[in-house]
């Protein structure tokens, strides 16, 4: 069992300080762990992959969430932090039959990302297709790049 989501070496733009911070959080949580509670991210957590794209007028956040229902996904935006959370429930009873391989995650997930620009929270939209959640966040007027004409006197 890995403690943090494995980061593949070819992934660019991954700040190592984030990774260290998340490892530190996980280790801290490990010491807080007590048996009856299974809320700890280390034991029941699932950290779906999240991407952030920036075109001139919009931010686009994509999260890989295969096999959920639309209403099992919660999205919230608070002070420039976008949070995607929810829970994937195990669909079938595993009592009958024997499990040979169990790699898929079930349970709660929670991802937050600080958006790199101010967005217009009234215009945010989201779609869920082929197991990928796409959140479109139009930038607020003041965050859009502007062309400033230089007048030569």
């Amino acid at each position: 069992m890995s403690i943090i989501r494995y980061q593949f070496p070819q992934v660019p733009n991954w700040s190592s300080s984030d990774r260290l911070a998340s490892l530190r959080d996980e280790v801290n949580r490990l010491f807080d762990f007590s048996w009856p509670s299974r809320d700890s991210g280390l034991f029941s957590g699932w950290s779906p992959a999240l991407d952030v794209f920036d075109d001139k007028d919009n931010l686009v956040v994509k999260v890989e969430l295969p096999g959920l229902n639309k209403d099992e996904i919660n999205i919230s935006l608070d002070k420039g932090v976008l949070t995607v959370s929810g829970e994937r429930k195990q669909e079938h009873e595993s009592k009958e039959g024997e499990s040979f391989r169990s790699e898929r995650y079930f349970g709660k997930f929670h991802r937050s990302v600080t958006l790199p620009a101010t967005v217009d929270s009234t215009k945010v939209s989201a779609s869920y297709k082929d197991g990928i959640l796409t959140v479109d966040l139009p930038k607020a007027e003041e965050a859009k790049p502007k062309q400033i004409a230089v007048n030569v006197a």
Binding site: D51, D55, E64
Partner: peptide, 8 residues
């Protein structure tokens, strides 16, 4: 657009 952050 431009990739800001990518895990997938």
């Amino acid at each position: 657009g431009r990739e800001v952050y990518r895990e997938s």
